[in-house]
Computed example of a mutant assay.
Amino acid sequence: MKKDEIICSGGRGFKRTEDLQLVKDLAQAVGGSVGASRGAVSMGWIDEQYQVGLTGRTVTPDIYFACGISGMNQHLAGMKEASVIVAINKNPKAAIFKAADYGIVGDVYEVLPQLIEKWGK
């Protein structure tokens, strides 16, 4: 499998399938690919081909954006070898922050539009 340089993944921090468009927009803005947690796939929000984790793909990108992903062990196993992990979650105690190189404590609905605007120019 080709190594993606940047992967932007979404999880249950989103409220519905349409909201994952923010992750897709971020991926487009930074020239990356889209991924997802098992939770997002289980909710039927995105196809399982995008699932990162033990029961999905194992990825080793240069940068991995974990957007609204809590950081369950199953997911961490699939992305922990990323060179840089950026976690965005409104829960400052989310397990994903233990694996992250950079953490943004904030709501994905507020943070992602700002990142998209910044990189989309």
Results as ranks from 00 to 15, higher is better:
Lys2Phe: 07
Val59Arg: 06
Gly106Trp: 11
Leu76Phe: 07
Val52His: 06
Lys2His: 05
Val86Gln: 03
Leu76Pro: 01
Thr58Phe: 12
Ser83Cys: 04
Asp47Val: 01
Leu115Pro: 04
Ala99Cys: 00
Gly44Met: 07
Gly56Lys: 01
Arg57His: 09
Arg16Thr: 03
Asn73Gln: 08
Lys118Ile: 05
Thr17His: 10
Asp4Arg: 08
Gly32Ala: 10
Asp47Met: 01
Glu18Asn: 11
Gly56Arg: 01
Gln74Ala: 00
Val86Tyr: 03
Val34Thr: 13
Val30Pro: 01
Arg12Asn: 13
Tyr109Arg: 15
Arg12Trp: 12
Thr58Arg: 06
Gln114Gly: 03
Ala95Trp: 00
Met72Lys: 12
His75Phe: 14
Arg38Phe: 05
Lys98Gln: 02
Val84Leu: 12
Val105Met: 06
Gly56Leu: 05
Tyr109Gly: 13
Ala27Pro: 01
Gly106Arg: 09
Asn73Trp: 07
Gly31Val: 08
Ser9Lys: 02
Ser9Thr: 01
Ala87Arg: 03
Trp45His: 05
Ala29Asp: 02
Thr58Lys: 10
Gly31Trp: 02
Val105Leu: 06
Met1Arg: 09
Ile104Met: 08
Ala99Ile: 00
Asp4Val: 02
Ser83Trp: 06
Phe97Asn: 08
Gly71Leu: 04
Val86Met: 08
Ala27Tyr: 06
Ala40Ser: 11
Gly35Glu: 02
